[in-house]
């Protein structure tokens, strides 16, 4: 099942008018019911699986204990035969036959159970995959539904500005202007930073007496004195 084509039914010559009715309430209900059914079925199957597994473990234990008993009685039969007590040996052999038929019955049950467990597992897998698909389909509907909620507020936005002819062009121009201002401000900030760091450098240099050293009145006086001397 694909919901998308139901949501946007294409008609000859274009797509049908998409209105409030695009998300069919029935469709959502059916899908939600499917999802609930699938998860209920999965939960039930998991419960049965636990029970079956319990039974399976019990059966296995019984079969094991029967196997031990049979081996035990077999040894005893041999012992009885060795002791020449044939009557007793026959009785034990009959007991073994009983135990073996009981074991056969349990074994058949166990096989049937294992088959059932396999089927349940398969069913859980299919249902889980259905469930995921269903959830994805529902998500498509919910998406369209949520998007549609924005339509009303969008329409209101447009309606209030529709009177001005070049709505988009005007907004775009304002946005671009602000973007440019922002860039200019950033450039100005960069310039300021550079300026500050370079004046820092000049300060440092002059402190160290490197480069543009300011001539003081004393320096001039000294220079003139020297000139007179020579």
């Amino acid at each position: 099942m694909s919901i998308l084509k139901d949501l946007f039914k294409a008609i000859k010559g274009g797509v049908s008018e998409v209105g409030e009715s695009v998300v069919d309430a029935n469709l959502i209900r059916i899908l939600e019911q499917d999802i609930r059914d699938d998860s209920n079925a999965i939960n039930k199957a998991k419960q049965s699986l636990t029970q079956l597994k319990g039974t399976e473990i019990g059966l296995k234990r019984k079969i094991d204990s029967l196997t031990t008993d049979i081996t035990d009685y077999e040894a005893k039969t041999v012992e009885a035969l060795d002791a020449g007590k044939e009557d007793l040996a026959i009785q034990v052999a009959e007991k073994i036959a009983d135990l073996e038929s009981e074991k056969d019955i349990l074994f058949t049950e166990h096989t049937a159970l294992a088959k059932e467990v396999l089927q349940l597992n398969k069913m859980i897998k299919t249902r889980s995959s259905n469930l995921e698909k269903g959830k994805r389909e529902l998500e498509k509907i919910k998406t369209v539904e949520q998007l549609q909620k924005t339509t009303a507020s969008i329409n209101k936005n447009f309606a209030s500005t529709k009177s001005s002819g070049n709505r988009v062009a005007d907004s775009l121009a304002r946005a671009k202007k602000k973007q440019q201002e922002w860039k200019d401000n950033q450039k100005a900030g960069d310039w300021m930073e550079e300026e500050e760091s370079s004046s820092d450098l000049d300060k440092k240099l002059s402190e160290e007496g490197i480069g543009g050293k300011k001539t003081s009145a004393n320096d001039i006086l000294e220079r003139l004195k020297n000139k007179n001397k020579s």
Partner: peptide
């Protein structure tokens, strides 16, 4: 970075 065209945010 663009206060002329706002964004509507919804959630599913």
């Amino acid at each position: 970075n663009n206060d002329e065209f706002s964004i509507h945010v919804v959630m599913t």
